[in-house]
């Protein structure tokens, strides 16, 4: 869903996306001590597998974006994890383009970071309501990704404005499903291994 193919966006949008992605990946790697690499890799593999799951919506189906969950579970390490996932999806399945990779990373990673911050603030305020905080994080991340994808389109040319609006609409069911999904996932992890969520800073 968050895979914009090559050939759509304008050069300035591509350049900004690439610059943000490189800077974010650098910061994310800095925040990732070597001893945490196996754990973060394990989680990014979980997210990669989970992103391939199709959930039915009426006669059609959607697949999850999971950047809210990644932000909550990984913190800044979510950025390099998203890069790994998008590179693998592009190379193995042909999802998304290459030149546009930086923009696609930015459109997923910025919401992931914000959602992670929102999650930790809410969770700290109400430690018992991890699931609720997870629902907010999951919904917020998808909504922000939708806005950023639409923004990337809208900034690329006036002729893309109707498409940008339509694309935003397609994210509405995803945001609802992702909120419920993230609430359940975070709720379970917070009960069984709360330290896993605390490790993300």
């Amino acid at each position: 869903m968050a895979h914009i193919p090559d050939g759509v966006l304008s050069p300035p949008v591509l350049a900004i996306g690439a610059a943000l992605a490189v800077a974010g990946t650098g910061l994310g790697l800095k925040a990732l001590p070597p001893e945490r690499v196996p754990a973060v890799a394990m989680l990014s593999a979980v997210f990669f597998v989970a992103a391939l799951v199709h959930l039915p919506v009426g006669p059609s189906s959607v697949h999850l974006i999971l950047n809210g969950l990644m932000g909550a579970a990984l913190g800044w390490a979510a950025v390099p994890a998203i890069v790994v996932a998008l590179v693998l999806q592009a190379v193995l399945f042909g999802f998304g383009g290459l030149v546009v990779l930086g923009t696609n990373v930015t459109n997923m990673a910025v919401p992931a970071l914000i959602a992670g911050w929102v999650f930790r603030s809410l969770w700290r305020a109400r430690p018992r309501n991890a699931a609720l905080a997870g629902a907010v994080a999951g919904g917020v991340a998808v909504a922000l990704t939708a806005l950023m994808v639409a923004g990337s389109l809208a900034l690329s040319g006036r002729e893309f404005w109707p498409a940008a609006r339509l694309v935003t609409l397609t994210y509405v069911p995803v945001a609802i499903i992702e909120a419920a999904f993230t609430a359940a996932a975070i709720g379970l992890v917070a009960r069984v291994r709360p330290d896993l969520l605390e490790a993300a800073r």
Partner: peptide, 28 residues
Amino acid sequence: TSFHTWRSFGHLIGMLMVTSIERSERIH
């Protein structure tokens, strides 16, 4: 298309996160 489905998949992936992190600790 139901809340039950979304919650079940959430639990499935949450479970996967927990078991995988334990596996990564053993590997490390």
